[in-house]
Simulated scan of single mutants.
Amino acid sequence: MRIRDIKVGKIDLPLKRTYKRAQRIIETPEEIVVKVITDEGEIGIGSAATTSQITGDTEDSILGALKLIKPKIIGIETDDTEGIFKAIDKTLVNNSAAKAAIDMAIYDLFGKKYGIPLYKFFGGYRNEIETDITINFGTVEEMVTSSLDAIMKGYTHLKVKVGTDSQVAIDRLNVLKKSVRKGVTLRVDADQGWRPKEAVRTIRKMEDMGLDIDFIEQPVKAWDYDGLKYVTDHVETEILADESVQGAPDALKIIQTRGADLINIKLMKCGGFHNAIKIINMAEIVGIKCMMGCMLESKIGITAAASLAVARRNMIKADLDTMLMFKEDSIVGGVNIDKNIIKVSNEPGLGIHEVKGWNEIIL
């Protein structure tokens, strides 16, 4: 089965409400969906989310990258995944979102050809995983309301966006801790908002107050590996590296220096499954656990991420809630979410049957 064509399209993903985080406000996310078509008529599905402020990928850059990639892999056997990814990497550097979309589609085809769901191909450790839900930064009232609403829906782990003011962060978390019932765990996403010493002071205050934070995600700037290690070494709370790990080479830096306690893997950051697996394997060797995260992605990307997350025992946490933020689900098939549990299907590949509202873009 050889690659005959690659078609590219776009889907609209209107949100239920505006998505806020420390560095950006999003009202209508954009997602590019690729269809890799074989000479036997089989179709593999993949997607690319625009994440300009994290990976530098915009809609135009994704489309430009796919235009370059397409002629380089036409005619290659779908089983030759190493050859496909080698050709892609030789064609252009970075552009991880476009590479992830092709990567997803190739593995989707692989699963369909051999009649195996991807989670079983990747390891099959389990078929479901618990996800947290993000509580966006806002007023105290907004954050408490969002937290209580999430708990009523069955979520037991809340990932709280705290903004850049460390004292405000402490105040918000203190109120939330008093507002939620016992058994609900708070996770904190600092979104690169603090300086290293400020982060240490802030986290120690949280510890002294008994806030019992599960982990602190990316407290310092992505490029500040020394600062990240400083924070990790000087607090008891576990530190999760997110933006600092764009790909396998970045993960190696963290692993070699023990610069973080946990690594957050996102397919859009690292370029797909084949690079994500490298990170998982390196981390597992030295005993660093991993979390599977996502960008603001449709069910295509969430299905792909969940397929790897459930498959590997070193994946102990998941942050895969974004598909719940959309007004409607345009993806037929894929994962199912029951409260805070994401369950993958036993259908071949990603198990996605149709992408509604897909509008083709001619490259």
Rank of each mutant, 00 (worst) to 15 (best):
D208N: 13
L228S: 07
I279Q: 08
T134W: 04
L68Q: 13
D60W: 03
N275C: 00
R313A: 08
K86Q: 03
L148N: 09
D80K: 05
P29G: 09
M291G: 05
S345K: 09
A98Q: 06
R2Y: 01
D5E: 15
V355R: 05
C270R: 04
K72L: 05
V286S: 08
I74L: 14
V162G: 06
G83K: 09
I341N: 07
Y19G: 02
D103L: 01
T131Y: 06
G349W: 03
L267E: 11
M292P: 07
T232A: 12
G46N: 04
M292A: 09
T185R: 12
A22D: 11
K159W: 11
T131L: 04
I32D: 03
K86T: 09
E27G: 10
E360I: 12
A48K: 04
G351K: 02
N136D: 13
G154K: 10
L13P: 07
D214T: 14
L296A: 04
D261P: 01
A304C: 07
E328N: 14
N275R: 14
E328A: 13
G333V: 02
H157S: 10
I300E: 02
T322D: 08
K177H: 15
G56R: 08
R312N: 12
T303F: 01
N314R: 04
A65P: 01
I331Q: 11
M152K: 15
A260Q: 07
A260N: 07
Y19N: 10
G351N: 06
V344D: 03
K221M: 11
